[in-house]
């Protein structure tokens, strides 16, 4: 299930500076595991020690916040877009 993953600046040191990388997996969690294989160090930045999404990370699947879908178990299809976005932004 190849998908495109947009990588924010704080994580680009793991991707050699690239802002978009391919990954594969049938769920968001599986995609994160695949990212970890390709770019070691990524998982720890995204998930806490219980394996849950960190408080200050938002992940969007085709533009939808995965917390409105099935969280990390949200199903991923071929060609989907995943965006990793720092949660800290905004203020009316």
């Amino acid at each position: 299930m190849p998908v495109k993953v947009r990588v924010p600046t704080p994580l680009r040191r793991f991707t050699g500076g690239t802002d978009e990388v391919p990954a594969a997996g049938e769920s968001v969690r599986a995609v994160i595991e695949d990212l970890e294989k390709r770019h070691p160090g990524m998982r720890e930045r995204l998930l806490d020690d219980k394996g849950e999404l960190r408080r200050f990370v938002n992940i969007y699947l085709n533009g939808d916040d995965i917390r409105f879908l099935n969280q990390l178990n949200s199903q991923v299809k071929d060609g989907d877009d995943i965006s990793i976005v720092p949660a800290i932004a905004g203020g009316e």
Binding site: P8, P10, R54, F56, P86
Partner: peptide, 9 residues
């Protein structure tokens, strides 16, 4: 605005 280590503010 974001911590590179933990994404905190």
């Amino acid at each position: 605005h974001v911590c590179e280590d933990c994404f905190g503010p």
